[in-house]
Nucleic acid binder design. Sequence first.
DNA 1: GATAAGGCTTCCAGTGACGGGAAGGTCAAG
DNA 2: CTTGACCTTCCCGTCACTGGAAGCCTTATC
Lengths: 130, 130
Amino acid sequence: MNISEVGARAGLPAKTIRYYEEIGLIHPQRGANGYRHFRETDLHKLAFIGRARGLGFSIEDCRALLALYEDKARASADVKALAERHLEQIAAKLSELRAMQRVLSDLVGACCGDARPDCPILSGLASPAR
Amino acid sequence: MNISEVGARAGLPAKTIRYYEEIGLIHPQRGANGYRHFRETDLHKLAFIGRARGLGFSIEDCRALLALYEDKARASADVKALAERHLEQIAAKLSELRAMQRVLSDLVGACCGDARPDCPILSGLASPAR
DNA sequence: GATAAGGCTTCCAGTGACGGGAAGGTCAAG
DNA sequence: CTTGACCTTCCCGTCACTGGAAGCCTTATC
């Protein structure tokens, strides 16, 4: 199948698939006309990558996950360790965002939001947080 | 004051401050030797930007916030609207991350993580989410 | 057979917000 | 006078794509 079909089936834009080939994540065959030709295994790989990306794994993590996926002698502990590291990053990002949300929603709550210029949000940004 | 001192006081690396000048957020004076010379107002602006960045505002948001900060005839409603849009983005990012966390922690919980190759994490990535 | 539309190719440039590092000028201390 | 710590500009790299240009290939229609 051609790039746009595999893209539609894997839920990825053609541009992204070309990029994944460029960085060596996939290796589609080429037809005599120079077109990429994708087999079912390529489609599966792309869908795998798409789902891993959807869970926030980096491209390099995806590369490692693919390698583990194709290594029939892998230890599930290796996969779990990778996923747990990623979970920690997610948790860190979550708490960072929650802290931002806390501070900013306090500021927004203190701002009456009318035509007057007085604004606790700007004052809060102008002076160090307590 | 020179760039490294203002950087230390505002909590920003010199590189970042040069970048902020390049994109027109600040306009420090120059000495005869070509060195940037920062006044107190520059320091305040940089600290303001640093705090806004710490709350996750984009550079363009910071530019708008700075303009509002310096506009004594601003309406606090404009500031509040900007902050509320940003709060919505934070909330969207939070729910996206929580969804990832949910799915991934389920997968991690199902993986025994030993030396055997069977791995629900890889299986979950290989087949469509239910 | 000509043509037009659409799909495919490569290549180059841009995104956001910096960070690293090179090459070279300046300043303060010893 | 030298050393080392600053400062300057400039250019490249990050991450994961995305947009667009220029040109070839395929398919359908006239």
